[in-house]
Simulated scan of single mutants.
Amino acid sequence: MAELYTFALLVFTSFFTLINPLGTMPIFMTMTATLSKQRRKQTAKKATIIAFLTIVAFAFSGHILFDFFGISVNSFRIVGGVIFFTMGWDMLQARLGHIKHTDDEEKIDAYVDDVSVTPLAIPMICGPGAITNAIILMQDADKYPQKITLIAVIALVLFITYLILIGASKITDKLGVTGNKVMMRLMGLIVMVIAVEFFFSGLKPIVLSMLHP
């Protein structure tokens, strides 16, 4: 039993650090700044559910899929970096989520669906680090109680992430329109820096492997 508790603690600390819901919160705030409270809640719910299903799917089959398609985690980092950079540039120009200002429910629904999947669920919440961690820990979990613990703790971390994102709504309401625009531009710079780190952390090993096969 003590071994199971130790494993659960390892899973919780590693996933909470890698997912970093407190770091995701400002980006969530800027992307949903002019959505209603209900829409923000809906966006957070969809993003965390999609992230959970993706992490669990990779935990059980990620190693097989990566080998079958010849995909490396470094390639995933490069793609994530490109997505982040594009998103950060739009945030810097205060262009992110321009569709939110329309009263067209169909367009708002489409926007919520879009941002829930990318970039919030993937790669913000469910990034290369979380996916790799899930694959490795699932391989280490050689007994069924450990596998169940792994899935349960991942669910707990993502539930906490959901609560943190919901809490961001109160901050967004207090900032107002001008405050949210300033926040969006600042977060745009930070996201672009994250994008560069993602891109080159994935590119460096690939280049080194080409130079020293």
Results as ranks from 00 to 15, higher is better:
Phe7Tyr: 11
Ile190Gln: 14
Phe84Val: 06
Ala110Tyr: 14
Thr48Arg: 00
Lys174His: 10
Phe85Ser: 09
Thr48Ile: 10
Thr86Val: 15
Ala141Tyr: 02
Thr172Cys: 04
Ile19Asp: 05
Ala168Met: 13
Gly167Glu: 11
Val207Gly: 06
Leu203Phe: 08
Gly70Gln: 09
Leu53Trp: 00
Asp173Leu: 13
Leu35Met: 15
Gly127Lys: 04
Val115Tyr: 06
Met183Glu: 14
Tyr162Lys: 09
Trp89Asn: 07
Gly176Val: 05
Leu22Ser: 08
Asn133His: 05
Val117His: 01
Leu211Asn: 02
Val117Met: 14
Gln38Trp: 07
Gly23Thr: 00
Lys46Cys: 07
Val177His: 15
Val112Arg: 14
Leu65Glu: 02
Arg185Ala: 09
Met183Arg: 13
Ile136Phe: 03
Glu106Ile: 10
Phe60Lys: 03
Asp173Ala: 13
Gly62Ile: 07
Ile190Asp: 04
Gln146Val: 00
Met1Ala: 11
His212Ser: 05
Met192Lys: 02
Ile206Phe: 12
Lys46Pro: 11
Ala44Leu: 12
Lys107Gly: 06
Leu163Val: 08
Ile135His: 03
Asn20Ala: 12
Asp90His: 13
Met91Thr: 06
Val196Ala: 15
Phe200Pro: 04
Asn180Ile: 01
Thr149Val: 08
Gly80Ile: 06
Ser201Asp: 13
Leu186Ile: 14
Tyr111Trp: 12
Ala121Cys: 06
Phe52Thr: 07
Val79Arg: 00
Arg39Phe: 08
Phe159Tyr: 05
Met124Ile: 13
Thr132Asn: 01
Ile125Val: 06
Arg77Phe: 00
Ala195Glu: 08
Leu211Tyr: 02
Lys181Pro: 03
Ser201Asn: 13
